[in-house]
Design a binder for these strands. Structure first.
Lengths: 244, 244
DNA sequence: TCTGCGATTTGACCGGCATCAAGGACGCTC
DNA sequence: GAGCGTCCTTGATGCCGGTCAAATCGCAGA
């Protein structure tokens, strides 16, 4: 990962949490900015009915804590044992005065500026389960993947249920679709918390178009066949969303 | 509606569009701020597969144009014949200098600050069709409703297909659920572009809990029965989300 | 190593909603 | 008011994925 946005000298607190323990909860005081040092953080909303909606995951280097990524709107919990550092309110004020340009970058990141949030909404509204999971695994690969001999080795820090609550499906379906992708030799499961992307182009195609094109390049828009009224469910295409 | 955020003296351009014509498209130059004068604006993403995802609607008085509510991320199209006014980049700079406090309010609103966007995500991930529609109609009532003799008269400026693309369902299902709510005498359809909320408490209950409680108050969390593993689908509760 | 518990996988079933297909209502223009 | 295109409603059908259930896996602690 690249040089982190916040350095040790900026930070005023380090926190560790085991899985499922909160770093902050909805309604906690706001204004501080957090940076993931290790592990994986879930930003989520609980409903009183007991359901959970995971709005996003934060990985090492990611910054969160403001707006829709802060305690005014969501809970932040460890998806696995994690460490997080904090830049408090006063430290942020100090940085705004001494280094306004860098401070604005930090603030933008803490609002979730790095991620294209609307893509997630598009995905969970329309795509079938297989495509949702392909999209998630592909983006995880881009974010966390380690290239090893032409294949991509990826950590999977969160549970199946976390993935399910992020994609709007059940953990059983996540498990089934995972198995399906393994049987198709698109991915390989290495224990529960690691996988390998064996055919990245196919996974990408599945994520973007919902179809199993075997070509190495993303199909061009004009090559996609769809009816005038509505595309077949499985040819749904996210290329526009991911290009934006 | 309350006094609009932007006054005529702030604005530098007025635009009118018939239904389905764009005010701006994804990739257009950004930096300007728009205010709805009349009608209804759809903020949406198109996919190359031909599907559309409506991320939000803007009504008279709403301000948009930045971040996920701007041309860097979405298209803005008229959902019905609409008028929009614009505060250009230069005008915004001027306001930032002369009235920084008001300018920051305007900027926050243009990012979509007014609406709790995460509630929409929770809704489209989990809720069944009936609850999605109840939620949408209830929020429309709160936003646009005119109280008339104890009932709420509400404009419905957009087509069924627009609602469907906002809630992640088909327009046929929107139509069916609408009919069902009418048959239950919860709403009354007055032509295609207007409806009346006859039993607001029931509609609200349906929107929040997914169940047809007939009580006038929102059921308290502890009164909701759900299994330890997972609530029954129809008792899904959004109260936490809407409280936030 | 054994034991126990939570996480995951897998199977069987079925219900809600997408899909396909008419038919009807509404709002234009002429 | 006739004609026409668009939008909406309604019906029939099928399948994806949610639900319930049980077996297996994996890890931590004794």
């Amino acid at each position: 990962m690249a040089k982190p946005l916040l350095q040790t000298s900026d930070l005023d607190l380090f926190m560790s949490r085991p899985r499922n323990r909160p770093f902050f909860s909805e309604g906690d005081p706001s204004g501080a900015i957090y940076q993931v040092e290790s592990g994986c953080i879930r930003l989520q909303k609980m409903t009183e009915g007991g359901r959970r909606c995971v709005l996003s995951f934060c990985y090492p280097g990611d910054v969160f804590g403001l707006g829709t990524h802060g305690p005014e709107q969501v809970d932040a919990e460890a998806a696995c044992a994690s460490r997080v550092s904090r830049l408090g309110h006063l430290g942020l004020q100090r940085m705004l005065q001494s280094e306004p340009t860098r401070a604005m970058k930090v603030i933008d990141a803490a609002y979730g500026g790095q991620e294209p949030g609307s893509e997630h909404v598009v995905m969970i509204s329309f795509a079938p389960a297989e495509q949702k999971l392909a999209w998630f695994l592909a983006s995880l690969g881009q974010r966390l993947g380690q290239s090893v001999g032409g294949e991509l080795l990826v950590d999977l820090p969160m549970m199946r249920a976390d993935i399910a609550d992020h994609l709007g499906m059940t953990f059983e379906t996540v498990s089934r679709e995972m198995t399906k992708l393994r049987d198709l030799k698109i991915i390989d499961l290495l224990g529960l918390r690691k996988f390998k992307i064996q055919r990245a182009a196919v996974l990408q195609s599945l994520a973007l178009t919902g179809s199993l094109a075997t070509s190495r390049h993303v199909p061009s828009p004009s090559s996609l066949a769809f009816s005038p009224r509505m595309p077949a469910r499985r040819t749904f295409d996210l290329a526009a969303a991911s290009a934006g």
